[in-house]
Design a protein around this nucleic acid. Structure first.
Length: 456
RNA sequence: GUGAUUGUAGCUCAGUUGGUUAGAGCGUCGGAUUGUGGUUCCGAAGGUCGCCGGUUCGAACCCGGUCUUUCACCCCA
């Protein structure tokens, strides 16, 4: 017996229904991106490993899928390392390619490599799968699609504003209620500076990121475990306790950060962005959230995260500004900002709330029943006429039993069935059956088109 | 990477203290109905009980390993 087939852990097949739904999401997102002047690019599924390594921190390196070299790769590896079972160092010798982990780093590579062909500010979008060797769980897959929009080569905060507008528009079109959480890495740096631990910004932000999840006490405990002084932790308390609306939070921050130049700059940036989004009158609420840190090390300014209000699933969109991403690849002083829509989580949210418009899943609208060669030949011609009138039409390929063909139409949710038998052939007419109403009439081709078009 | 959890027909699940031939519903296919779907009735196909090993006279059931599912941690879309 054949072995039971399966697919790798954390990956999925998509049925026609699922694909139609996913394409609806992708098309919506693409449409909004285009509306703001972004152009598509694609990059290879695999990159050279040295492009990817070291960009996502130690954790990220572990989550990279690595591709074995071709040929007799083991013979070229260091025998001593092999013998010692030193996987970490052996992989460097037997693998030089890896699957992309996100779209931002390949984009940075792309920009540096093609810098002379690009016009800056360069606005691109990119919708492709990425892979992470994570352990799968709710809303977390090993293969998933990201929909990135970035603008690179511009410092202007209008870009941040534009990205928030895009988020607002995409989720308005998809009919998902969301909140945009906004923070600024400069504010976080300022906080670290003020409490006298300027080098511990990452530890501090990772800890306060958990405030909502584990509570104040455990956050303080974690900070203590990481070796922060009691003095620093107590200085941090008023910042963790900040509340009120965006502008009162920011005013309070201004006084706390009065002696931090970078911190004040961050507050200022937040104010500018918020003033713009406020005057634009977006549907989506925008909240300043100091607990928002995000793991990626390369953000330097704004940090965004979008959460669905009606489903518990983590963030469905995230991003921020990175001042020196291309610097690693040798192109200095180019600032970029971008966000990534997590298509698979959006898909999960849409499924859970059943937010698809009814016409999204509609496939074939008219099926021609096949009674045999002569009838099918006639149907073939009329089917083409139908298609030219914008009706999605198919002909049943075999001269099967009527029951079977009707059943097929029923299962596929096809609204109209065209029946052409001997009597229709002789009178040069077709019978159109409305599967919803169960009624049918025999008509001329012109009238049949009328009936179908007005019935849809 | 750490700690749990799941696996029996295409799907959802039963399956007694370990005991002959592993069941149901839904779905699929065929028929009742040779030009009319959904409803109904009748019938059929479909299982190495995730995989490998162990205990036992005997394992779907007990034990170990492995893979898979789901969840938490870490991290993240």
């Amino acid at each position: 017996m054949a072995q039971k087939p399966s697919i790798p852990k954390g990956t999925r097949d998509f049925s026609p229904l699922e694909m139609v739904r996913r394409n609806y999401i992708f098309d919506t997102i693409k449409g909004v991106f285009r509306m703001y002047g972004y152009m598509p690019i694609e990059t290879p599924a695999m990159e050279n490993l040295d492009t990817l390594l070291g960009k996502y921190g130690e954790e990220g390196d572990k989550l990279l899928f690595k591709i074995l070299n071709s040929g007799d790769f083991l013979s070229k590896a260091d025998k001593a390392l092999l013998e010692a079972g030193d996987s970490g160092r052996v992989t460097g010798q037997i693998s030089e390619k890896g699957l992309r982990y996100d779209l931002t780093v390949p984009f940075a590579r792309f920009v540096v490599q093609h810098q002379n062909d690009l016009t800056f500010p360069f606005k691109r979008y990119q919708i492709q799968p990425v892979w992470r060797a994570d352990r799968p769980q709710k809303g977390r897959y090993r293969e998933f699609f990201q929909c990135d929009v970035d603008v690179i080569g511009s410092d202007g905060l209008l870009n941040e504003v534009e990205l928030i507008q895009i988020v607002d528009e995409v989720y308005r079109q998809l009919n998902i209620r969301v909140v945009v959480k906004l923070n600024n890495r400069k504010v976080l740096a300022g906080i670290a500076e003020i409490i006298g631990e300027p080098n511990r910004m990452v530890d501090i932000t990772v800890a306060i990121d958990k405030l909502e999840k584990i509570g104040l006490q455990k956050v303080n405990q974690e900070l203590e475990d990481k070796g922060l002084s009691n003095e620093a932790i107590s200085k941090l308390q008023p910042i963790l306790a900040l509340s009120g609306d965006n502008f009162s939070k920011l005013n309070a921050l201004s006084s706390v950060l009065a002696y931090s130049e970078v911190g004040l700059k961050g507050v200022d940036e937040l104010k500018i962005v918020l003033n713009h989004t406020k005057s634009l009158g977006l549907n989506t609420p925008v909240e300043v959230d100091l607990t928002l840190a995000r793991g990626l090390n390369y953000y330097t300014g704004a940090i965004f995260e979008v959460k669905a209000l009606d489903v518990e699933i983590g963030s469905i969109t995230g991003g921020g500004r990175y001042d020196d991403l291309t610097g690693i690849f040798g192109l200095k002083n180019v600032s970029g900002v971008g966000i990534s829509f997590g298509a698979d989580r959006i898909f999960d949210v849409m499924n859970q709330l059943d937010l698809y418009p009814t016409d999204v899943t509609a496939a074939t609208q008219l099926l021609f029943v096949n009674f045999g060669e002569k009838e099918a030949a006639f149907a073939l011609k009329i089917a083409n006429t139908m298609r030219k009138n914008g009706i999605r039409t198919e002909i049943y390929p075999d001269g099967a039993k009527m029951k079977k063909q009707m059943n097929y139409a029923d299962k596929k949710g096809i609204r109209f069935v065209a029946i052409i038998g001997e009597s229709e052939l002789n009178s040069n007419q077709i019978t159109i059956k409305d599967m919803n109403a169960g009624t049918q009439e025999t008509l001329s081709v012109e009238n049949a088109i009328q009936t179908v078009v007005s019935g849809l």
